[in-house]
C-alpha cells in the first residue's frame, strides 16, 4: 500500500513536470518568434535549441508516465483517456517545435507592416496553448473549472483564425513574389494549426470530464 502511495505522488509530479514543459516551450516560442521578427537571429536560434531540448524532455516524461500507469495498474478506468490526453498535448508541443525549426530553416522574409499582425497571431496561439495546459491540469485536479478554460481556448483559437485570415489577405494583396507569399502562408497556417491542436485537446478534455463525473 505504501508503494502505491509513493508511486501516486511520483506520477503526479511527472504529469505536472510534463505540463510545465509545454508552458515553458510555449513562452520560449513566443519570445523566439519575437526575436526572429526583430532580426535578432542569434537569440532566436538559442530559443530554437531550448524548445528542441524541452520537446525531448517532454517525450521522456510522457513515456515514463505511460509506463508507470500501466506497470502499477493505476487509473484502470481513466487510463486510456489520460494517455490520449498526454499524447495530444505532446502533439501541440511537437507542432510548436516543428514550426520554429521550419522558421529557422526557411527564415521567411516579413515586411514591417506585417510584423505586428504576426506578433498578435503568436500571442493568440500561445494563449490558446496556455489555456490548454490549464484545462489539462484542471482535468486532473479541478473538474468544475474545466469548462471556463475550454471557452478561453476557443476564443483564442478563433482569434488566431481571424488574424491568420487577415494576414493572408494582406500578403496576397501585396506586390511580392508568389513563392514568398506561399512561404508566409505556410508559416501562418502552421501557427494556426498549433491553436487548432490546442482546441482539439480542449474538446477531448470536455468529453473525458463528462466521463469522469461520478
Amino acid at each position: 500500500m505504501f508503494t502505491i502511495f509513493k508511486k501516486t505522488r511520483e506520477l503526479e509530479a511527472e504529469i505536472n513536470r510534463f505540463l510545465d514543459t509545454i508552458i515553458e516551450a510555449s513562452v520560449h516560442f513566443q519570445e523566439g518568434i519575437k526575436y526572429f521578427l526583430q532580426g535578432d537571429l542569434e537569440t532566436f536560434e538559442e530559443k530554437v535549441r531550448i524548445i528542441d531540448r524541452l520537446e525531448s524532455n517532454a517525450d521522456q516524461l510522457r513515456r515514463s508516465v505511460e509506463e508507470n500507469l500501466y506497470l502499477n495498474m493505476l487509473l484502470p478506468e481513466a487510463r486510456g483517456d489520460v494517455l490520449a490526453l498526454l499524447e495530444n498535448s505532446d502533439d501541440v508541443l511537437n507542432a510548436i517545435e516543428e514550426t520554429i525549426i521550419e522558421c529557422s530553416v526557411e527564415k521567411p522574409s516579413c515586411t514591417d507592416e506585417l510584423k505586428s499582425d504576426f506578433l498578435n497571431l503568436v500571442d493568440a496561439v500561445t494563449s490558446a496553448v496556455e489555456e490548454m495546459v490549464a484545462t489539462v491540469r484542471d482535468y486532473f485536479t479541478n473538474l468544475s473549472d474545466v469548462p471556463n478554460h475550454i471557452t478561453k481556448i476557443k476564443v483564442h483559437e478563433h482569434e488566431s483564425d481571424e488574424i491568420g485570415e487577415k494576414l493572408r489577405r494582406k500578403i496576397f494583396s501585396k506586390q511580392i513574389e508568389l513563392c514568398e507569399k506561399l512561404q508566409l502562408r505556410d508559416f501562418i497556417l502552421r501557427l494556426e494549426k498549433i491553436a487548432d491542436l490546442a482546441e482539439d485537446v480542449g474538446d477531448r478534455v470536455d468529453i473525458y470530464r463528462i466521463k469522469r463525473m461520478v
Partner: peptide, 24 residues
C-alpha cells in the same frame, strides 16, 4: 451519491489521489 457529488464539486482532488482513495 448526492453527498459525494456535492463533496466532489467542492474539493480539489487529483485524479490519481482519487484513484487511490477509491481503491482503499
Amino acid at each position: 451519491y448526492i453527498v459525494l457529488k456535492h463533496y466532489m464539486n467542492h474539493v480539489k482532488i487529483h485524479i490519481l489521489d482519487m484513484d487511490l482513495y477509491t481503491r482503499i
